[in-house]
Amino acid sequence: MASYNYMMSADEVAQELNCSKSHAYKLVKAMNKELSAQGYITMAGRIPKAFWAKKMYGYEIAGN
């Protein structure tokens, strides 16, 4: 079975934005808070890549 990593870590966020890891963790925490308020289950230090794309770039990733 093929595995697809649909979650993005704070380290990957830091690389994507070329920022410090502490700032990336703050961004991930804020996005997780938003997801939690919408009723989603969240993981500390990780966010769904689809949510990242929607928040940062304004588009949605199509699911398979």
Rank of each mutant, 00 (worst) to 15 (best):
A2I: 00
S3F: 00
S3A: 09
S3M: 03
Y4T: 06
N5V: 11
N5P: 01
N5H: 10
N5R: 07
Y6G: 07
M7D: 11
M8E: 09
S9C: 05
A10R: 02
A10C: 08
V13R: 04
A14S: 14
Q15L: 09
E16S: 04
C19K: 10
C19I: 06
C19V: 02
C19A: 12
S22Q: 05
H23T: 08
A24N: 00
A24G: 10
Y25R: 06
K26R: 10
L27R: 01
K29S: 02
K29M: 06
A30E: 05
A30V: 10
A30K: 09
M31E: 01
K33V: 04
E34F: 03
L35S: 05
A37G: 06
Q38S: 10
Q38L: 03
Q38Y: 07
G39K: 08
G39E: 04
Y40R: 05
I41C: 04
I41V: 13
M43D: 04
G45L: 05
R46A: 06
I47S: 13
A50W: 09
F51Y: 14
F51D: 10
F51P: 01
W52N: 10
A53M: 14
A53Q: 15
K54P: 09
K55T: 03
M56N: 11
Y57S: 14
Y57I: 07
Y59M: 13
Y59L: 12
E60A: 11
E60V: 04
I61Q: 01
G63E: 15
N64F: 05
